[in-house]
Simulated scan of single mutants.
Amino acid sequence: MLEAKIGGSFMRLNKASQCLLVSDVGRSQEYFRDQLGFKMEGQFVDRDGVSFLIKKAENKELIRPNHTVNGFMESYIWVDDVDIVYDDLKARGAILESEPINQAYGMREFLVYDPDGYRFCIGSPIK
């Protein structure tokens, strides 16, 4: 953990939130709340310490999910049991790409999208 000593006391970095530029803030916040189980905290959505800042894009060209540029996802979200999370998100009507898959690198994971096409990989170590 990164700590810096300032004036005899330590300062820690506690949390980071990725900023997602979206076409409709209300729609995105509702999706994160209703389909992904996040809580809304002002312009942030948060679930179990995973948070995103939801901001309105000034124009649609600013909405560029990573997978449309380089094939990757916006975030990798580690969970205790990927199958339980998958079942929860499926029951909520989340936009899912596939069921959880065991990967050769020892993770079991699936992909979930938001309404603007942002892609998140959710996974846990294979049991």
Rank of each mutant, 00 (worst) to 15 (best):
P115A: 09
S98H: 13
L111Q: 12
N14E: 14
L36S: 06
I6N: 05
I63K: 07
E97V: 05
V79M: 04
V79E: 10
N14F: 03
V79G: 06
E61Y: 11
L13G: 01
V22R: 00
D80V: 10
S124G: 03
T68R: 08
V22M: 01
I126H: 02
R27T: 12
I6G: 01
K15H: 15
D34V: 04
K90C: 10
K56E: 14
F52K: 03
D116L: 04
K60D: 14
D116T: 06
Q43A: 14
R64V: 12
L2S: 11
S124P: 05
L62A: 13
R27Q: 12
Q43T: 14
E109S: 13
G71Q: 05
I54Y: 02
L96T: 10
E41Q: 15
M1Y: 10
V45D: 07
L111N: 15
I126S: 03
Q43C: 12
A57C: 07
I126K: 04
N14D: 12
G26E: 15
E3I: 13
R47E: 06
F10V: 15
L62N: 15
Y86H: 11
N14L: 14
Y31D: 01
K60T: 12
K39Q: 15
N14H: 02
M40N: 12
V69T: 05
R33H: 09
F52I: 01
V112N: 06
K5N: 13
M40A: 11
Q18F: 13
K56D: 07
L21W: 07
V79T: 08
E97A: 14
R47N: 07
E30I: 06
D116C: 09
M107S: 03
F52Q: 05
D116R: 10
L89S: 06
M11Q: 14
L13A: 12
D114N: 02
Q103W: 10
L111K: 13
F32L: 01
G49F: 03
W78F: 14
G117K: 07
P125I: 03
E30K: 14
E30V: 11
S17V: 02
V22Q: 08
R33D: 04
I6L: 13
V112P: 02
K90E: 10
G71R: 05
F72N: 14
D48W: 06
M73C: 13
